[in-house]
């Protein structure tokens, strides 16, 4: 081990640090979530290991001066919002990418207009949206003004994912279907869509995760009924208890579950694709 070249050793240290910084916060959060309650605070040392704060989260402990986290409705809102955002931005992204398969007049400009949604700083966009809403007399709400901004934000991601997928898609498969007398609409449903479905899954994953923990755009546009990230942020203003950490652990586990489902679906579709492989690219001269 002593002969390890200097470069390798540097890279190993770098990688180690990277992992510590990546997982450190989560590990600390995980440990502190098992702090004793209700007297234990969000700091070391651990007075006693307990699941008190998890029970507190679900209202299973005796009432104390520490109020339960006001996140139940916020969680529901965020999930609903993320789901709606996912559906809308994936549909829009897929259709836009489909349009971009052919060159059309102004495609360059429209491309950058779409991409702008993910480039513009979210806080400014949120503020601008709030001003517009105010001037037009529209009430700000998570399902209205915030929803629009979430779509504006996630739609370019879905679009870019689908653009990459369609880039590798062989249009001759569609042409073959048309030449059999099948209309373009049916061809899209029966041939194109099943073939690009793994890409659609990725686009959906992007949409969901981006929207679920979106903060700056929601801050000014969600109105009085806040989304989950805003609700959590709101609790910081009062006093921090380990129940937030307990919630953080649970919500991280939830994200992992979503990722695992995505991974399984993807693996299944890749496995299917491998068996079927392609009657396409491989034999090309």
């Amino acid at each position: 081990m002593g002969d390890l070249p200097i470069l390798k050793r540097t890279l190993a240290v770098y990688t180690g640090l990277f992992i510590v910084f990546l997982y450190g916060p989560f590990v600390v959060m995980g440990i502190l979530s098992f702090q004793a309650g209700p007297e234990g605070g969000p700091q070391f040392p651990i007075i006693e290991w307990s699941t008190y704060w998890y029970r507190h989260l679900f209202g299973l402990t005796e009432a104390t001066r520490i109020a339960p986290l006001p996140i139940r409705e916020a969680l529901l809102r965020s999930l609903t919002l993320a789901f709606a955002t996912t559906v809308v931005s994936t549909v829009l992204g897929t259709l836009t990418a489909q349009a971009f398969r052919r060159n059309f007049r102004g495609s360059g400009v429209i491309f950058y207009l779409v991409i702008l949604g993910m480039m513009v700083p979210g806080l400014l966009l949120g503020l601008g949206q709030a001003l517009v809403a105010q001037n037009l007399g529209i009430d700000r709400s998570w399902w209205g003004t915030a929803f629009v901004l979430h779509v504006v934000y996630t739609y370019p991601f879905a679009f870019l994912v689908m653009l990459a997928i369609f880039n590798r898609f062989d249009p001759r498969v569609e042409e073959a279907a048309w030449s059999l007398g099948v209309s373009p609409a049916v061809t899209f449903r029966k041939v194109t869509f099943p073939m690009v479905f793994p890409g659609v899954l990725s686009a959906m994953l992007f949409g969901f995760t981006l929207s679920y923990d979106e903060f700056p755009r929601s801050l000014f546009t969600a109105g009085s009924d806040v989304t989950l990230p805003l609700a959590i942020y709101g609790t910081f203003a009062v006093e921090i208890h380990p129940n937030i950490f307990a919630f953080g652990v649970l919500s991280t586990l939830f994200s992992f579950t979503i990722l695992a489902i995505y991974g399984l679906l993807m693996a299944a579709s890749v496995r299917r694709a491998r068996i079927k492989a392609s009657g396409i690219q491989e034999d090309e001269a």
């Binding site: 062989d170 001759r172 498969v173 042409e175 073959a176 279907a177 048309w178 030449s179 059999l180 007398g181 099948v182 209309s183 373009p184 041939v191 099943p194 073939m195 299917r272 694709a273 079927k276 492989a277 392609s278 009657g279 396409i280 690219q281 034999d283 090309e284």
Partner: peptide
């Protein structure tokens, strides 16, 4: 449009539908 011409085209790279069986193709 292509699908109303009643002409069949056999593509150079076969362009089979990779997600369907031979029968369904």
């Amino acid at each position: 449009p292509t699908h109303r011409r009643g002409l069949g085209i056999v593509q150079q790279n076969y362009a089979l539908f990779p997600h369907m069986t031979v029968f369904d193709n």
